[in-house]
Amino acid sequence: MKLDELKAHLKPGEVYRRADLAQWSKSVDRHIQALVESNVLQKLSQGLYYCQKKTVFGQTPPDEEILVHQFLKDDRFLLMSPNLYNTLGVGTTQLYNKRVVYNHKRHGEFMLGKRTFSFCIKPHFPKKVTKEFLLVDLVNNLENLAEDKEQVLEKVYSKREFFDVKKLERATKNYGSVRTRKLLGKLLSAESNTAYAI
């Protein structure tokens, strides 16, 4: 049976585009519908499907890195959460129910499965999140924070000794907005832990 041939190619935990599945079926839309109805595949968004993976704890959601890679058809992206700002110790405590994806191709908010991803086109971003990049990113997004912005910035300036200055200089130059470069320039050139207003 042709449907069984398609199923034989599927790997639990993998995310597929319709074009991926079409190479194994001449009636791909009918077969996809049958696989979704039988809970073999889960529709994540238009043309994007997840081969469900079962564990003793039930169905597991798709790995976010795999999901974003298939959505973009590109591995040049950085997946992060604004919740990471809370690890810097600069007074942020808000929890955000979203993932941010810095990339070169897509912009806007997309619901993939049951999760919301905010895709932002950026010319430059690192391959991995570092605390120096995180600080630069926080200052880039200062206006979007729920906390008091001046208090957060004061805490940023008081944390100078917790960062590798050279790495922070590089991150500021490579990833900071004009305003962020100006604000963090004060931190990088400061001889004391003086706070500056926004």
Results as ranks from 00 to 15, higher is better:
Asp75Thr: 10
Pro82Ser: 04
Gln70Asn: 06
Ser45Ile: 06
Phe117Asn: 02
Gly113Asn: 00
Leu138Ser: 12
His107Lys: 11
Leu145Ser: 03
Asp29Ser: 14
Lys26Asp: 12
Lys128Trp: 12
Leu145Asp: 07
Asn103Val: 12
Lys122Leu: 15
Val90Asp: 07
Leu44His: 05
Val139Trp: 01
Gly47Cys: 11
Leu145Pro: 00
Lys114Thr: 09
Asp148Ser: 08
Val40Cys: 04
Lys122Gly: 05
Val68Lys: 01
Asp74Gln: 04
Phe133Ser: 01
Ile121Ser: 03
Leu145Trp: 00
Ser118Phe: 08
Ser158His: 11
Leu35Ala: 08
Cys51Asp: 08
Val136Pro: 02
Lys105Val: 14
Leu84Cys: 03
Asp29His: 13
Pro123Gly: 01
Thr60Gln: 15
Ser118Cys: 10
Ser38Met: 02
Gln46Tyr: 13
Phe77Leu: 03
Lys98Leu: 12
Leu78Cys: 09
Gln94Trp: 11
Phe77Asn: 02
Ala146Tyr: 06
His69Arg: 12
Gln52Lys: 15
Asp74Val: 09
Pro126Met: 02
Ser118Asp: 11
Pro126Cys: 01
Pro123Phe: 08
Lys98His: 14
Lys149Leu: 12
Asn86Phe: 02
Asp29Asn: 13
Cys120Pro: 07
Val129Cys: 07
Gln151Thr: 07
Gln94Asn: 06
Thr130Leu: 03
Asn39Phe: 06
Gln70Met: 02
Ser81Cys: 00
Gln33Pro: 04
His124Thr: 11
Asn86Arg: 08
Thr93Cys: 06
Leu153Thr: 02
Ala34Gln: 08
Gly89Tyr: 02
Thr93Gly: 06
Asn97Met: 11
Asn86Val: 01
His107Ala: 10
Cys120Arg: 14
Ala146Glu: 08
Ala146Cys: 04
Lys43Met: 12
Thr116Asp: 07
Asp75Trp: 13
Thr55Ser: 15
Ile32Gly: 05
Val100Tyr: 09
Val90Gly: 04
Lys127Asn: 05
Val36Leu: 00
Phe110Met: 11
Leu78Asn: 01
Asn140Arg: 04
Ser25Met: 14
Val36Pro: 00
Glu65His: 10
Pro123Met: 00
Gln52Ile: 15
Val100Ser: 01
Ile66Gln: 14
Phe117Ala: 02
Lys53Glu: 10
Thr55Met: 14
Lys73Arg: 14
Leu138Asn: 13
Asn97Val: 08
Glu65Gln: 11
Leu153Gln: 09
Ser38Thr: 10
Leu95Cys: 10
Tyr85Val: 00
Met111Asn: 13
Gln52Leu: 15
Pro62Phe: 10
His107Gln: 15
Leu84Phe: 01
Thr130Gly: 03
Leu78Pro: 03
Leu142Val: 03
Phe117Cys: 00
Gln52Ser: 15
Leu44Trp: 02
Thr116Glu: 05
Val68Phe: 12
Val156Gly: 03
Phe71Met: 09
Leu135Asp: 08
Arg106Leu: 12
Glu65Tyr: 10
Leu134Tyr: 05
Gln52His: 09
Phe57Asn: 09
Val100Leu: 15
Gly47Glu: 12
Pro126Ile: 02
Gly91Ala: 10
